[in-house]
Amino acid sequence: MDRIPILKMGDCLLVTIQVDMHDQLAVSLQEDLTAQIAKYASRGVLIDISTLEIVDSFIGRMLANIAAMSRVLDAQTVLTGMQPAVAITLVELGMSLSGIKTALNVERGMELLRQYIQEENEYREPDGSEE
């Protein structure tokens, strides 16, 4: 069965969803991602959906789940590149994905993650309880 490739870039993971996903593929992405976050102790996850033509409630729920699960594993998720038509439809559908951080494109998304990781590190360093 097909799987969506997950790329590792330093302390971040990168996923580009390009295919018209069926539900099983979405479920396995969720499993693979959480496994890899745990394995590499990743601090950030970037999911690019700029080529995705629709996001229905199932995919929307999967994205929200990934963000929540990553959060539990101490990683921040950023969703990038959602198309206007997809965003309008998702809002009309009743999903606002309010727990997920978003960015216009991958570049902005990476900036956002770097910034977030840096802020977290600054917050953690003074008392030296981390690391």
Binding site: I54, D56, F58, T89, L90
Partner: peptide, 11 residues
Amino acid sequence: VDQTKLVTATS
């Protein structure tokens, strides 16, 4: 936008 709405409802 209309296409996307219809396809999403279909899904």
